[in-house]
């Protein structure tokens, strides 16, 4: 998962905004019409997203049905995690972000850590 391009981000936005999985032509219809994209362009973008692990797909008849590999929230959290990993001092950055978390975020963090402890 690296370097989500402009078109890739737009396609992911469409997939995250849809309750069910979509075919290439569905994605093409839902993308802003002023973009004036070719079918093959969207197909290539979806194939790239599949290769990079952003989407999963299932074959039904002659067409693939695509859906996001994770929810938008999970993807945002993963990307944020990688931004934190990039920091010169990831531990310090993590503690810093933990300190700056809201009460609700802190409670969620505590629950997650509890679950982790019980699993061990």
């Amino acid at each position: 998962m690296n370097g989500l391009g402009r078109l890739e981000a737009a396609v992911m936005d469409v997939l995250w905004g849809s309750p069910e999985s979509l075919r290439v032509r569905d994605v093409l219809e839902r993308l802003a019409p002023e973009r004036n994209l070719a079918y093959t362009t969207v197909m290539t973008v979806l194939e790239n997203l599949h290769r990079k692990g952003w989407v999963v797909r299932e074959r039904e008849g002659r067409a693939y049905w695509y859906e996001p590999a994770t929810t938008r929230e999970e993807a945002a959290a993963q990307a944020m995690r990688r931004v934190l990993d990039a920091m010169d001092d990831p531990e310090g950055a993590l503690l810093h972000f933990a300190r700056s978390a809201s009460d609700r975020e802190a409670a969620a963090l505590r629950r997650a850590l509890d679950r982790r402890r019980r699993r061990r």
């Binding site: 391009g5 993807a75 990688r82």
Partner: peptide, 18 residues
């Protein structure tokens, strides 16, 4: 590192990606 930041932008504000 750059890719992580670009991904974050793409996920939270797709219109600003790239």
């Amino acid at each position: 590192d750059h890719g992580a930041h670009v991904d974050l932008i793409g996920v939270i504000t797709p219109s600003d990606a790239g």
